[in-house]
């Protein structure tokens, strides 16, 4: 067992364990904390995949912004952290579907079926690949350049900024205390 595999397993355990706790914990506040752990595991996986920039962005944006935002929302809304029953009545069905879905994905994206003896289930050569080309040393710089390169991703990049802006304005409008929904509806009518 190489060190890399060990690190991978630890990070995966963090990610999946955190995720599992997020969806099962009764206390919403705790769920938020577990979410951070899970997101941190994902960031670690990014670093392991030699995408350190994404790892850092993951920490900053996801943990630093989104998870914190969720935590703040939880704290600002009283009486929503502890519901008597955290699951809907359909939870057994949901769980079954999730498991079936997982099994289906696993059969496709891993060589497990081939291991089990199914002939030619998926093209396992591509899945078991454990060597990859070298990541260029200036990958982060290239990434930055490509994002603002008109021939590459400038247009989507700008559109994304507009999207963020619109989301921000929309969020402010939605929670603006000046107008309740009924008033807005009356205004429109």
């Amino acid at each position: 067992m190489t060190v890399e595999l060990l690190v991978f397993l630890i990070l995966s355990a963090l990610t999946l364990g955190g995720g599992m706790l997020v969806v099962t914990t009764r206390n919403l506040f705790h769920a938020g904390l577990y979410l951070m752990i899970s997101l941190f595991g994902v960031a670690g996986l990014f670093v392991l995949l030699t995408a350190p920039f994404l790892g850092v962005v993951q920490v900053i944006v996801y943990i630093g912004a989104i998870a914190i935002l969720i935590m703040l929302a939880i704290m600002l809304s009283p009486n929503i952290t502890n519901l008597p029953n955290p699951f809907t009545a359909q939870w057994p069905v949901g769980a079954a579907l999730a498991v079936i879905f997982f099994v289906m994905l696993i059969t496709v994206v891993t060589p497990v079926m081939n291991e089990l003896g199914a002939d030619d289930w998926v093209n396992s050569d591509q899945l078991t690949v454990d060597t990859a080309g070298d990541v260029p040393a200036d990958g982060i710089a290239t990434l930055g350049e490509e994002l603002v390169d008109p021939h590459k991703y400038m247009l989507p990049f700008e559109v994304a900024s507009v999207l963020l802006m619109a989301a921000m304005i929309g969020a402010v409008l939605l929670v603006h205390p000046g107008k309740q929904a009924e008033d807005v509806i009356e205004d429109v009518a």
């Binding site: 899970s38 809907t88 769980a95």
Partner: peptide, 21 residues
């Protein structure tokens, strides 16, 4: 791992009552 995480998330979406969850 990604498949597992996705399924976990799907389970949460399908079954949690709290909208924030």
């Amino acid at each position: 791992v990604a498949a597992a995480l996705f399924s976990i998330g799907m389970f949460g979406v399908l079954t949690r009552r709290n909208a924030i969850a």
